[in-house]
């Protein structure tokens, strides 16, 4: 049925002398350098820039830091608005007692992460949880579960080291982006598709992102967001505001659990304007939704009601341009300090 295996004994015997190998490897390395350099040069010439790419590994690097002792961990939870709205350098500069940690995930509402932190008895820090009435819908509860599960089940020191090295590679090489991969290029060629999308997001290793609206059509994004929102909510089972609120009992309990062990959870609603705001207010009026939820938790803040925060322009109705991030972050810190939730 099966044959036996055999192994020859000497590596050198089967591979001959060393010189041919040296020549082959020198040729290979030279060709690789030229090829990769040419590909990098080609894409850079078309106004593409390298950026860090977010992943469960990058998230886990930050999740690992929530147990810091020397400073109070200040966790930023949420989706894109806080991930692209808060400037981490300003946070570090103005709040030296705290260790700002970005755990927000673009396009993923944060409740799964909040639950995980509530269940983690070793966490005693402060959480600024950016979520609106839509993000509190039960359909969105598990959006960040993949990240949480990865951290608990697969995260190891070895992957930590890998991700830190990958950050260096991604920060400097455009070809580290899968959009420019060999297979993606072959697919575009076969499909007759154009060049990759010019991304207006620039991501940093600390998981903070910059949106540069000069590189995109903000008006189109605005309508895309509003249409998406209407479509998503229309596709969900109809339920009353009371049912929505009763679903949130565990969320209040998680916050109480963290508060009880010396931490603090601040529920925060980032500012939105125009079409985005009017759509949410029409589908989920604040007096029936957000305000009632806010009454069940110790600390909450609606940025629309804070003139210093609401004054910033939002080109797509819900996100800041990166030029406004530092000033917005200073204003946000001022508001949080004024409420007594943070100390400078």
């Amino acid at each position: 049925m099966l044959s036996s295996t055999s192994s020859s004994d000497s590596a050198s015997a089967e591979s001959g002398g060393g010189k041919p190998w040296l020549i082959a490897w020198l040729i290979a390395l030279c060709l690789v350098a030229v090829t990769l350099g040419a590909v990098e040069y080609r894409w850079r010439g078309r106004d593409y820039r390298p950026t860090i790419l977010d992943s469960t590994l990058l998230w886990s690097v930050q999740r690992d830091r929530v147990y810091a002792q020397s400073q109070t961990p200040l966790l930023l939870l949420g989706a894109s608005r806080i991930a692209f709205g808060v400037d981490m350098n300003v946070m570090r500069e103005l709040l030296p007692r705290y260790l700002p940690i970005m755990l927000a995930v673009n396009a993923h509402y944060p409740l799964a992460t909040l639950r995980d932190l509530a269940e983690d008895e070793n966490f005693h820090g402060v959480i600024l949880c950016d979520v609106d009435s839509v993000g509190l819908l039960r359909e969105y509860n598990e959006m960040q579960r993949e990240y949480v599960q990865y951290f608990h089940r697969q995260w190891t020191p070895s992957w930590h080291a890998h991700r830190l090295l990958l950050n260096v590679w991604q920060a400097h090489a455009l070809i580290a982006d899968p959009a420019f991969s060999f297979v993606a290029s072959a697919r575009r060629w076969l499909d007759g598709a154009g060049e990759p999308f010019h991304n207006y997001i620039h991501f940093h290793a600390d998981r903070n992102g910059d949106l540069d609206f000069s590189r995109t059509d903000a008006e189109a994004i605005k309508h895309h967001f509003a249409d998406n929102l209407k479509g998503n909510i229309a596709g969900m089972p109809k339920r009353t505001a009371d049912e929505w609120l009763s679903d949130l009992a565990p969320v209040s309990a998680w916050a109480k659990r963290i508060n009880a062990r010396g931490g603090r959870v601040i529920f925060f609603q980032s500012p939105t304007h125009g079409l985005e705001r009017s759509t949410v207010d029409r589908l989920m009026p604040p007096e029936l939704y957000w305000n009632r939820f806010a009454a069940t938790v110790a600390n909450s803040l609606d940025a629309v009601l804070e003139p210093s925060l609401n004054a910033f322009p939002l080109p797509d109705d819900s996100h800041l341009d990166y030029h406004d991030k530092p000033a917005y972050t200073r204003a946000l810190i001022d508001v949080l300090v004024a409420h007594g939730w943070l100390q400078r």
């Binding site: 190998w21 082959a24 060709l31 690789v32 060999f182």
Partner: peptide, 30 residues
């Protein structure tokens, strides 16, 4: 192993360059 060992260094270098370039040009999650 014999195939690699018997290849001319120039051809082997070319083959290695193709494989290495494609490895680097295939980024993504592990």
């Amino acid at each position: 192993k014999q195939v690699f060992t018997r290849l001319h260094p120039l051809l082997l270098g070319l083959l290695l360059a193709i494989m290495l370039s494609l490895i680097v040009l295939s980024p993504g999650e592990n």
